[in-house]
Design a protein around this nucleic acid. Structure first.
Lengths: 121, 121
DNA sequence: CAGAATCCTATCCGATACTG
DNA sequence: CAGTATCGGATAGGATTCTG
C-alpha cells in the first residue's frame, strides 16, 4: 500500500492506487475524447468519423477506435456489403462518459480565451 | 425509426475550430489533471506535491507546474526563507476545473472494473 | 470503403547529476 | 528545499503505400 500523505480529510478518493491514472492513460491521449464526442449523436462510419474529427490521420483513427473498442467504450459493426460499411457506436459504458466530454468541451469553450490571454504573457 | 432518414451530413462541431483540442493538449497530458486534483484542498509545497502525485518525477512535476502556471490554472508563491519554501495553489480559473476533475475521478473509479474486464478479452 | 503495414520523426518522460 | 541541465530510450503519431 502506498501511503497517502497526511490526511486532512478524504472526500473523494482521487488516487485509489491507479484507477484514475489508468483511465487517463486511455482517454487522455490526443484523440480518444474527440472521437467519443463525435459519436455523441449516434453511429458513424469510418469515413464519416474521419471527417468529423478534423485533422486525425487514418492510422490514428484506426488505432483509437481499436483501443476504445477494447475498453468497451465503442462497438464496431461490419456489414457484409459491397462496398464495405462499418459503423462505430458508443456502448452503454461509452455513453456514461458523454456528460464528461460535454462538460469538458463547455469548459474549454468558456475558458479558452482566458487561458490564451494568460499564456501570451 | 421508420419514416425518416438519419441526418448524417455533419453532426457539427463541438469543435469550434480548436478550442477543445487546444485545452486537451494541455490538460490531456499524463500529469496535469493529477496535479490539479492534488491541489483541490489548498496550497501545497513542491515536495508535498511530489509525494501527493505518486510516481511523478521531479522533472515532470516542474514542467507540469510551469505549464499550469503559464495557463493561469495554478499560482506560484515563493517565500524568501531558508530553506526555501514555494507553494502552489489553484487560481480561480483552476478551481473552475475542479468539478471536472472530481467527476472524471469518480467516473474512473466507478467504471475501471468494467473497462479492465472488457480489456482482458 | 475501410483498413493494414511500413517507415520515420518529434516529443515525452525517466534517470541522473548538479545548484542557489 | 526546490529546482535546473543534460542524456537517452520509449512511444506517439504523421505520411505513404498496399489490400480485400
Amino acid at each position: 500500500m502506498t501511503g497517502f500523505t497526511r490526511v486532512r480529510s478524504c472526500p473523494p478518493p482521487m488516487d485509489d492506487g491507479g484507477a484514475v491514472r489508468a483511465v487517463l492513460d486511455r482517454i487522455g491521449d490526443k484523440w480518444s475524447l474527440l472521437v467519443v464526442g463525435a459519436l455523441r449523436e449516434g453511429p458513424l462510419r469510418f469515413g464519416e468519423l474521419e471527417k468529423a474529427v478534423t485533422g486525425i490521420s487514418q492510422r490514428m483513427l484506426t488505432l483509437t477506435l481499436k483501443h476504445l473498442a477494447e475498453d468497451g467504450l465503442v462497438s464496431r459493426t461490419a456489414y457484409a456489403e459491397v462496398p464495405p460499411r462499418v459503423e462505430y457506436e458508443l456502448t452503454g459504458l461509452g455513453r456514461t462518459l458523454m456528460p464528461l466530454v460535454i462538460a469538458l468541451a463547455e469548459w474549454a469553450l468558456e475558458h479558452s480565451d482566458e487561458i490564451n490571454a494568460h499564456r501570451r504573457r
